[in-house]
Design a protein around this nucleic acid. Structure first.
Lengths: 229, 229
DNA sequence: TAGTTTCCTGAACCGCCGTTCAGCAAACCG
DNA sequence: CGGTTTGCTGAACGGCGGTTCAGGAAACTA
């Protein structure tokens, strides 16, 4: 209806991704995917040999897509490494509906990879890229004298762990870990690790009503004095 | 066979827990649970109204059991707050086969609670208790002058997030996050937060062969000088 | 002993869902 | 124009799995 020009195969794939995020890999029914895509269940099997093949392709498609989105979102208007890092953090928390769905797929990956040996290289690769993304940025910031000296590898691991840890509490709706608190927790830790200041840009409005809001809490600002060695 | 005296209902429950950890909640088949418990599928429905009821009771049972195990394991031989804290961390990482299964159930909880509203209060309660457990211990350590002054609430959140973040990478078999590295990452961060030293007790043997080993990496030792205000 | 409750089973029922298949219409090709 | 390929469908098949049911054996009661 919305884009009738888009080929059916892609519509099926997109519908599969959406369904996987909402119902989980084993909860997904191809009849429903077909319905969402506006086609018959038989057509799904015309384009994809088996259910498993469809889900695999859908996962691969969505993770690559999510990664692109994450990466591109950070590198737009980067006037400093601190700002870019902040954008990266923002893109790794469930700060928007799309990122919320990405998070659901991330949990899905954990769930599957914890049991299925075959998915582990795939998951490891994703983490490896994420880690390199952060470590490189941190190393660049340290080299520029903007961040305090540190081991970018270890700091990268800690940041990733922190993001996963607060992010998962956020998406399971833990009232003790609102999106605002998640953001603040990560920012405070990162600022502390890298010797940055945390400035209250806009006062964090208390209870945080909905997910879709993009409220500002505290911002990372580069240290005014660059120190080396 | 092993304990023929144990009533069937409990055997079913225990089998369900094991199956859930290994196959996930929606992957679990009651025919297989019945087989594991050495009973007929019909008996499962004699004791539990429906599949959903069985799974719910099994989850509740196992989480409470896991919590007891975690708590009791820490408070045995506590000569200092640092030692007790270290034991707590150890009990929150997949350091043993049982804890590995607990972790699988923990991921299962994330997976379910991210989609099912009804499970969220339950998950929130578990996190709340975990958080209080750590925050109280930290506060006690600070009060005793053993830990550096800090906000136990925030440090507790950061520790929990770190544990979840490195733990999940460990159980999905990320080669970049072995159990040893997970432990070391958490210990380093905690030691740094609380002003403790990290001593290499036994050299971390390089590649870490199997999960079932209980190798010592680095240990938290209390600061020799107590500082106040 | 007779009656009742408690555990437990084999067998069948039934709905869901992945998959297959025969066929149809449009586009494409010569 | 006839023939073939491509995209798609409705209908049916097959099995897996949760659930039900009629009954049976043992324990418990009086």
């Amino acid at each position: 209806m919305s884009q009738p020009a888009r080929p059916a195969r892609e519509r099926i794939l997109a519908a599969a991704v959406r369904r996987i995020a909402r119902e989980g890999m084993e909860g997904v029914r191809i009849a429903r995917i077909a319905m969402d895509a506006g086609v018959s269940p038989a057509l799904v099997h015309y384009h994809f040999a088996t259910r498993e093949a469809l889900l695999a392709e859908a996962l691969d498609y969505s993770y690559n897509y999510a990664e692109e989105r994450r990466i591109s979102s950070g590198s737009e208007i980067a006037t400093s490494h601190a700002e870019r890092l902040e954008a990266m953090l923002e893109g790794c928390l469930p700060t928007s509906p799309e990122l919320h769905d990405d998070w659901l797929l991330w949990v899905e990956l954990w769930h599957q990879a914890a049991r299925n040996e075959q998915l582990r290289p795939f998951a490891g690769e994703l983490y490896s890229r994420l880690h390199a993304w952060f470590a490189d940025e941190i190393a660049a910031g340290v080299a520029a004298g903007e961040f305090a000296r540190c081991d970018p590898d270890e700091v990268g691991d800690r940041i990733l762990a922190l993001l996963d840890g607060v992010g998962v509490r956020t998406i399971i709706g833990d009232p003790q870990m609102s999106l605002a608190r998640a953001r603040q927790t990560v920012r405070a830790a990162v600022a502390h690790e890298l010797g940055l200041s945390v400035s209250p840009a806009g006062l964090a409005e208390a209870p945080e009503p909905v997910l879709h809001r993009q409220e500002v809490g505290m911002r990372l600002i580069p240290r005014s004095t660059a120190q080396r060695s």
